[in-house]
Nucleic acid binder design. Structure first.
Ligand SMILES: [Mn+2]
Ligand SMILES: [Mn+2]
Ligand SMILES: [Zn+2]
Ligand SMILES: [Zn+2]
Lengths: 146, 146
DNA sequence: ATTGCATGTGCAACTTAATTGCACTTATGG
DNA sequence: CCATAAGTGCAATTAAGTTGCACATGCAAT
């Protein structure tokens, strides 16, 4: 297991004390193969822990602020969270199903982007490029809900 | 003024009765050079009209559903709305300032995207590709808020 | 003209996701 | 041990959007 996959290291590398709550939140985000909402994360945690809902929000904010976790917008009302891009985890687009709310990670190669022209001309500070595909996932398409 | 720039035509072409309220909402969205939130749109409208807040939300939903208006997600909590892509209005990315919440339309050429590989392999239905750049706009960068 | 119906709108109440204020707890250095 | 800061819990609040239901308006069939 590499340094980047050890959640305690990920936290301390980001100048964050590795508290039990933080580790647990980060484990859920990191072990999941697709991004989850704060509500999803809390629902999973509360089965085994007595962590407070607000603490989950605060930890997620903190992890986003320190670049450990990525806050991903959806076609819906809640944010989703996934491990932030790093050397072991290339930036990649996501697919959001407008029926079931499930978010998929797409391979970095599935969509190619070039923001060079923007970088040359944009007068503000660019911090993040988010690419999201919206539609209906395989499962929901099968069920035939249009 | 072309057909696509006449808002009453835009509505009837989308099989929507051109009521005063719908025209007014569409005018605000269409005449603006950058996307606005439902709250922004309502704030502008209520100065001169007695339209209800809920009606604004319902009209925006309807316009999105009929492909007249585009619902754009941000790095923040509210959706923004702009004229949907059409032959006079190419799809383009947006910039969202995390400080002031202002959203800019970027030129279609500023970012190039190729989703061909995804289209070949993705098993669900793809309805929309959204590209959003987050960061700090020129004005807010100047003020020096980090 | 009167009725019936569908569409459009207004208003109050509600929901969801997230945030805030403040108190309590835990960890750490002196 | 104490002082302080960091971390957490809980209740209340907010922001954005949604829902239910009543009223209004337009139009077609009688
Ligand atoms: Mn991902
Ligand atoms: Mn635009
Ligand atoms: Zn789905
Ligand atoms: Zn700004």
């Amino acid at each position: 297991m590499c340094d980047q996959c050890n959640y305690e290291n990920l936290l301390s590398n980001a100048d964050l004390v590795a508290t039990t709550n933080r580790i647990q939140v980060l484990e859920i985000v990191g072990n999941n193969t697709f991004p989850l909402s704060a509500g999803d994360i809390y629902a999973i945690l509360e089965r085994t822990s007595s962590i407070n809902r607000v603490t989950v929000y605060r930890i997620l904010d903190l992890l986003v602020e320190h670049g450990v976790v990525d806050r991903i917008s959806t076609g819906g009302r809640a944010f989703y969270y996934g491990i932030a891009p790093n050397e072991h985890h290339k930036p990649h687009p996501h697919f959001y199903c407008r029926i079931c709310g499930q978010m998929d990670c797409l391979s970095p190669e599935s969509v190619t982007v070039d923001i060079a022209p923007l970088l040359k001309t944009y007068p503000g500070r660019i911090e993040k490029v988010e690419i999201r595909i919206d539609g209906i996932c395989k499962n929901c398409a099968k069920v035939g809900k249009k």
